[in-house]
């Protein structure tokens, strides 16, 4: 398995801030659909190494955005929200669900139940 630090949603901002202080930056975030839960892995870059933060949230639960801490999380979070329908709040650049998906595209297409 991947080296990762498991966190709760509430610890996330603090931890991210600490990582940013150390000179890391967010590389990307991966979301997985676990059925009734989402798993979100935040990958951070530092000196060509990846630091992974893993959190789990229930479906429908709000996830506060970290784009206020680091702007380049904005596109990543927009994408997660569109693909999975995660309720991410307060994204710095808000595409309102229209970043990659068009109005007539399937909604939340990455959910396991949305198989076509």
């Amino acid at each position: 398995m991947l080296n990762s630090i498991e966190l709760s949603k509430t610890d996330l901002p603090e931890r991210v801030e600490a990582l940013l202080e150390e000179g890391a930056r967010i590389a990307t975030a991966t979301c997985l659909d676990l059925g009734d839960q989402f798993e979100v892995i935040y990958h951070f870059n530092k000196d060509l190494e990846l630091i992974n933060l893993r959190i789990r949230i229930d479906k429908g639960e709000e996830l506060p955005s970290i784009s206020n801490l680091t702007l380049n999380a904005a596109l990543i979070e927009n994408e997660m929200r569109e693909f999975f329908g995660i309720n991410i709040t307060n994204i710095a650049i808000d595409f309102k669900g229209g970043m990659l998906l068009a109005g007539n595209s399937p909604k939340a297409p990455m959910l396991k139940c949305s198989d076509t």
């Binding site: 398995m1 991947l2 990307t28 997985l32 892995i41 990958h43 060509l48 992974n52």
Partner: peptide, 20 residues
């Protein structure tokens, strides 16, 4: 089975593949 992440350098920069 399991998960892995791989970073390589493309002409445009670092690409990251995560697979499970």
């Amino acid at each position: 089975d399991g998960e892995a992440v791989m970073c390589t350098e493309q002409p445009r920069g670092e690409v990251i593949y995560y697979a499970r």
